[in-house]
């Protein structure tokens, strides 16, 4: 799979953006010398890319994140180093955007430069087992709200439907129709389907562009 210089992951709160972002950055690092991951989450002080800071830095990935992430300072802060994402065009970047339209607000500051360079993919991550995005219609509503708030149009869809520990291959397969409907309604292509890595063998060949994810555990 080819990725543009900047890959942005946005979507409904709790759809799995951060986990995909960390996995994607680690995988891009295998083919790219200079990779950065930037955490733009201004909504949620928990479950941040910071949980994976150690493994990311061990892999030689530049880690851009608010000083205050995972601390008790519960404020919507962005790091000053964030501008490296748009200023340094030799950097391959993965951007983890906060959930919903509220989270995408932080994107507005970078959107003009990203649009001007026009070497980005903005992916809408959807989990059809999340309560407020169970139907393509509801997911599309969230998608449009994020575009309005972030001033950046989406370029593709990522199906990350799962039920946590209870996910079976069938759990994923049952969302294929809804994903196709969302693609049709939004006019966007399905870029990949992501599943927890142990599920890969059972789904191989049944879904195009399948990606295996390792779950990120917090290392203090």
């Amino acid at each position: 799979m080819d990725f543009k210089r900047i890959t942005l992951l946005a979507g409904h709160y709790g759809s799995g953006k951060t986990n995909i972002a960390v996995n994607l950055a680690l995988s891009l690092r295998q083919t790219h010398e200079r990779v950065a991951i930037a955490d733009l989450d201004i909504v949620n002080p928990y479950f941040r890319t910071k949980d994976s800071q150690y493994s990311l830095e061990q892999a030689g990935i530049r880690f851009i994140c608010s000083e205050y992430a995972n601390s008790n300072v519960d404020i919507p802060a962005l790091p000053q180093t964030l501008y490296a994402v748009t200023d340094d065009r030799n950097l391959t970047c993965v951007l983890d955007i906060g959930g919903d339209d509220r989270g995408a607000l932080a994107l507005g500051r970078l959107a003009p430069a990203i649009l001007e360079e026009n070497n980005y993919d903005m992916l809408f991550v959807v989990n059809f087992y999340r309560p407020l995005t169970q139907t393509p219609q509801d997911a599309l509503e969230v998608l449009r709200e994020i575009e309005l708030a972030g001033h950046l149009p989406f370029t593709g869809i990522v199906n990350n439907s799962n039920l946590g520990d209870e996910t079976t291959p069938d759990t994923v397969l049952r969302t294929v129709e809804r994903t196709e409907a969302l693609c049709r309604m939004s006019g966007l292509p399905l870029v990949f389907t992501s599943v927890h890595r142990p599920l890969l063998p059972a789904l191989e060949g049944k879904l195009p562009n399948l990606i295996g994810l390792d779950l990120q555990a917090k290392i203090r």
Binding site: G14, N127, Y129, R130, P131, Q134, G164, R174
Partner: peptide, 15 residues
């Protein structure tokens, strides 16, 4: 019905 994947806080609200 299908199960849904929820945060504890969301489960309280929906319930």
């Amino acid at each position: 019905a299908d199960k849904v994947l929820m945060k504890g806080n969301e489960a309280i609200a929906e319930a």
